[in-house]
Amino acid sequence: MIRVQAEDFDIGTEVAALTKGRTDIGALVTFSGLVRDANDGTVASMELEHYPGMTEKELARIEQEANERWPLQASLIIHRVGKLMPGDNIVLVVTASPHRQAAFEAASFLMDYLKTRAPFWKREDKNGEAHWVDARESDGDAAAKWDL
């Protein structure tokens, strides 16, 4: 399941909804990403821009790929857009499988691919100036190891 939204999410609520009425899930992994200040108190806010339409399609493609690679019983990707403050939630990935390895690996794969394929762009407001965050080479390396 894919959701792109301005609103915040609650991890407990999302996990409860995903597992409700099910007794077959043995392992559930959640990853959440937060707006991080660069340890020096200079990031006042962040703006998440996205490409409506393609974002949802790309996230669905990434999720589909994860489901083909691992025996997942459920998966969820929530990504926020719009104005966010340091400490706010940005992204949530949840994966469920009978055993832990698939859930761990699929969650890691979803994040690595989301970071290099999903059309989102971060703009930080820092020291009163807005600037676009540069892509990190290490994110490309992380995605490359999955050999998609």
Partner: peptide, 24 residues
């Protein structure tokens, strides 16, 4: 869909240009 500089645009209805993505 992600493309390259040599991706054909013939018959396409929408082309987007952007920097490397930075979500997540």
């Amino acid at each position: 869909e992600h493309g390259d500089f040599d991706t054909s645009v013939q018959g396409a209805t929408e082309i987007a240009f952007f920097p490397p993505v930075t979500g997540g």
